[in-house]
Design a binder for these strands. Structure first.
Lengths: 142, 142
DNA sequence: TCAAGATTGATGCATTTGCATCTATATGTT
DNA sequence: AACATATAGATGCAAATGCATCAATCTTGA
């Protein structure tokens, strides 16, 4: 079994590109005094869940985080006043994460920054066809 | 300025794919009782540098790590006996990272595992043409 | 019904990270 | 030469991570 050059190149470009782009978004967030991408992802999932909120264990597969990281991310967001941990009637072991008004506001502010990055880093760099092709190729790898 | 659906999808697929694949490689390393990918990358760069070794500050752009992380990664690899930190005659502030025999052996063992993953996760999943196309699209994003 | 096992989510502890700063040496300017 | 500034790399400290484990609750099967 031999690894071809194109394999290595695809591999390296995949990870370098992903890391570099994320770094640029994180830098933009920091610049704007905003928390990091994982907070955005979590806030967005929790906001989409609506007033009922969402169970931490349902958040795990969305965020691709381990259980303990999810738990601690929620801790920090509670501390920051962006979400509430609400008791869960249907399962007393669990809880529900519910976004606060302040959380919604934060998510919106983050989106404003995020959006600009996505436009500059992806949309402006690749035509629609290329974006579709890229998505298809990436999906073959998952 | 509006973010189109294909933009979001390319963005998400890029990062999810990268993370997922890396997780699988890391899992394979852990499985085989080997250190993590960043050790591999560092060992490889240092080994390629030959007997002269390489200056930490030259390693930084290769590894895409911040200075302090590079410094501490070298610490740990010294502790593990995989590299030596050699005094640098031409610049007394600095040092040179030189791979040890044990380090070469470790890199080779890691490559055996790594290679298998690359074959299974990339080479078997995408034909050569697709790999080339993917690389090209990713390069447009960097 | 009740014990055995599974699941939810939190947490103690050691390691790693991120940031800022420090020391030491090198370089550039007058 | 003498000083100011820049650069290389290490490090103290606070925060975040990874791992293992815990308590509480739920589910299942006899």
């Amino acid at each position: 079994m031999t690894i071809e050059k194109e394999t290595t190149q695809a591999w390296q470009n995949l990870h370098i590109t992903s890391r570099t782009l994320i770094e640029q978004v994180e830098a933009a967030f920091k610049q704007a005094d905003l928390p990091s991408l994982s907070w955005y992802d979590a806030l967005w999932e929790i906001e989409k869940a609506g007033g009922e909120g969402i169970r931490p264990n349902a958040l795990i597969p969305q965020l691709l985080l381990p259980q303990y990281q999810t738990s601690r991310l929620l801790d920090r967001m509670v501390t920051a006043g962006l979400i509430d941990r609400v008791v869960c009637d249907e399962d007393r072991r669990g809880c529900r994460a519910v976004i606060t008004e302040s959380g919604k506001e934060m998510r919106a502010r983050m989106w404003a920054t995020y959006k600009t990055c996505l436009d500059r880093l992806v949309q402006k760099k690749l035509g629609k066809d290329d974006r579709v092709t890229l998505t298809q190729l990436l999906q073959k790898l998952r």
